[in-house]
Design a protein around this nucleic acid. Structure first.
Length: 572
DNA sequence: GCCGTTTTCGGCCCGACTGTTTTCAGTCG
């Protein structure tokens, strides 16, 4: 993806500028652009329409650099910078506790250009004696190298919530603790997270920090202060905790939830009104020493005093939510309780673990009105796709289950293959028998962007295909999204009345947040499915809903908020 | 390098912890 390529270059530029001690605000401008670009899958479409500078954070200069990359595949300014500071040094910055100043020191004094050399020198004691480096510093660097070597890959939100829950439950059990909440990117429900942030309200911070650093899940303690500590969990994830007084919990939660850019925007707007926002509250900017706190107890109080709507954590990415909140124009986001059913669950007819009955029982316990048992189709042999004969048996079972149910309906679904030419692997005669047909690509990913787009568009045009499952095919940690002409595909979905799936499975989350927004702008409709292969997976619905919220979707944008009667009408 | 309900120039969010220092710089979020 071009946006990621450019983001990586801008990120390197920011780091090189840091090492060169360049203007901090210029560095921040590049860093901000990196975050913006990471979420901008259709950068080429912006460039083609000459709309790059309409993106907040992209000005004339960055526009020209983006255009330069798109047309030539390189950025001259970056090529020049690389001559001044060898790229290897940037690797040193990935070691926790080594920042630009330290990296420059090691390079200037000892010509260290990679982590392996840094480790060697640290072990041999050759770092000692450099300005500001003593034994403790070396110790921290070696520990940082350990973390670096273990890899810095991001973890999926389901795993992260699991680890977070273990810390939270130990902390909640303390009588000194008034409140505990997960904050940071995990609270914002980012698709993946790098670390876990936990906020605690207590008047006895020391005690809380002692317990936090001694949690069963802790493997190593990086930093332990009176109100702030940082540990490595046994699962290899960094967990940060901060303790604040109960009175400032709202202010701290806002600050600790981020995103950084959201906080900066909030604080900038506050400053224009002569208000200061920090993790303790909102304060008037005066010369007086004693400052009265205007708001601090809840996040709602803070947003209110700043004269804007409350902003849900999932929206706090500085992608327009602050401006919308100031104008009272935030959408009413979809909630988990709006979901009335799940149309993508696999039974043991194909590669699922559970029987239809077991799945139905679990779905009913969730308060759903319907569930579609959507097993794989005949050509996906690895997943025991169903033959025509299998379908007849399965249909019979569903009919008999439905006869015994009241107020709940099992739908006859399928997840069919879109082959390399865009055809579906059951005939129309068979397809029309299903209540819902979900189409997906599970093979032949290596085609060009145009070919893949054509395949999906052709599937959309099939009158029997109701839903496109996991539209980009990405699997976190295993496979990148395939490239598509997104606007074209989304427009085709709209024109053919095909529903786009938001797949809730934690290693998919596909569509992801930024593509959901793009698809909505193109008029598409959505369904949030779990792609369950076991009844426990039905719980993943909350992650799909979170993606929908991050994509600014309302209940009206999502078809499985409809009653059984209405969702059946939502088909083609 | 970006940006404008004070502004097209002169600002740009704010604080905790650590290790090395005797008052602070570097790192991190």
């Amino acid at each position: 993806m071009k946006n990621l390529e450019i983001a990586n270059i801008f990120s390197s530029i920011a780091q090189i500028l840091e090492i060169k001690s360049d203007n901090l605000f210029r560095i921040r401008a590049y860093e901000r652009a990196v975050e913006i670009l990471q979420d901008l899958d259709n950068i080429e479409e912006y460039a083609a329409a000459d709309k790059l500078t309409e993106i907040p954070g992209i000005g004339k200069d960055l526009e020209s650099k983006i255009k330069e990359y798109l047309s030539t595949g390189r950025i001259g300014y970056y090529e020049d910078l690389k001559k001044e500071v060898p790229l290897g040094i940037l690797e040193l910055l990935k070691v926790p506790s080594v920042g630009p100043k330290t990296a420059k020191l090691f390079y200037d004094e000892l010509n260290i250009k990679d982590v392996a050399t840094l480790e060697k020198f640290a072990l041999e004691g050759k770092l000692l004696g450099l300005e500001g480096v003593k034994e403790k510093t070396v110790e921290n660097i070696l520990r940082g190298i350990d973390i670096f070597k273990r890899g810095s890959e991001r973890i999926d939100i389901a795993t992260a919530w699991d680890i977070a829950a273990r810390f939270v439950s130990e902390l909640r059990a303390l009588k000194e603790v008034k409140r505990v909440e997960v904050a940071g990117s995990l609270r914002r429900m980012k698709e993946t997270v790098k670390d876990i942030d936990i906020l605690v309200a207590s008047n006895k911070p020391q005690k809380v920090m002692d317990v936090f650093c001694g949690c069963a899940e802790v493997k190593d303690v990086f930093a332990k202060g009176i109100t702030k500590s940082s540990v490595l969990s046994k699962g290899g994830v960094q967990v940060d905790a901060r303790v604040v007084k109960p009175d400032s919990f709202g202010a701290a939660l806002l600050y600790f939830t981020g995103s950084k850019n959201h906080n900066v925007k909030i604080r900038t707007i506050a400053a224009r009104r002569n208000l200061k926002v920090n993790e303790y509250g909102v304060f008037p900017v005066t010369r007086k020493k004693s400052q009265e706190c205007l708001a601090s107890k809840t996040e709602e109080d803070l947003y209110k005093i700043l004269k804007m709507q409350y902003i849900a954590p999932e929206l706090r990415e500085d992608t327009g939510e602050v401006e919308a909140a100031l104008k009272n124009k935030l959408p009413k986001l979809i909630e988990l309780k709006d979901i009335k059913g799940d149309l993508h669950a696999h039974s043991n007819y194909s590669d699922g673990k559970n029987t239809i009955r077991e799945i139905v029982d679990a779905a009913r316990k969730k308060g759903y009105e319907y569930i579609a048992i959507s097993d794989h189709s005949q050509s996906l042999k690895v997943a025991r796709g169903l033959s025509i004969a299998d379908l007849k048996i399965k249909k019979k079972e569903i009919d008999s289950v439905n006869k015994r149910l009241k107020g709940f309906r099992v739908l006859f679904g399928t997840e069919v293959e879109i082959d390399s030419a865009g055809n579906i692997d059951y005939d129309d005669e068979i397809l029309k028998e299903f209540d819902f047909v979900i189409a997906a690509i599970h093979s032949g990913f290596k085609q060009s962007k145009e070919q893949l787009s054509r395949r999906i568009i052709k599937a959309c045009r099939n009158k029997n295909v109701d839903i496109i499952a996991h539209p980009t095919g990405r699997l976190w940690g295993a496979r990148d999204s395939y490239e598509l002409n997104f606007e074209e595909v989304f427009k085709a979905a709209k024109d053919t009345n095909t529903i786009l799936e938001i797949n809730s499975f934690p290693n998919r989350l596909d569509l992801g947040d930024s593509l959901i927004r793009l698809a909505r702008q193109n008029g598409a409709r959505f369904i949030i499915n779990t792609d369950s292969h076991a009844v426990a997976h039905l719980d993943f619905m909350k992650f799909g809903v979170a993606m929908a919220r991050r994509g600014w979707l309302t209940k009206q944008d999502v078809v499985n908020t409809l009653s059984l009667k209405d969702i059946l009408k939502a088909r083609k």
